[in-house]
Amino acid sequence: MAVPRFWREIPSRYNLIGSRCGNCNKVMFPPRHICPHCRRIGKLEPYKLKPRGKVVSYAITHVAANGFEDQVPYVLAIVELEDGPRLTTQITDCDPAEVKIGDEVEIVFRRMGEEGEDGVLYYGYKGKLVKP
């Protein structure tokens, strides 16, 4: 991913900045530029989501996406955040066999990848199971 393309999304990637519609109050992540419900009458403002949620589904990746080869097997998941929106993320720091639908997850800060050996490093969010 080109540097400016990564860089301009840093607030969302580091701090879960999504959008909230001032008209219908719906919270969205990733951020949107127009409210899909209210369209032009909706007024979107940045909204910081709470870094907590639950696993809606998960999959154990053995054939990695480009750039993630060193991390197999890794758990890909859709997490529903407490604020409502869902996001696709990895579940890190776990034995893949531990993950179940409905598990509580906190969002943590992790290294996502790199632009080759001498390119920039990418950081962003991953989920981590919250053990009872």
């Binding site: 060193d70 991390q71 890190t92 943590v108 800060f109 992790r110 290294r111 490093l121 950081y123």
Partner: peptide, 16 residues
């Protein structure tokens, strides 16, 4: 450190 951790991620978690 896990494969997705480095000094920056550790520093961020401690800072938070």
């Amino acid at each position: 450190p896990g494969p997705d951790e480095d000094t920056a991620t550790i520093a961020v978690e401690a800072a938070r």
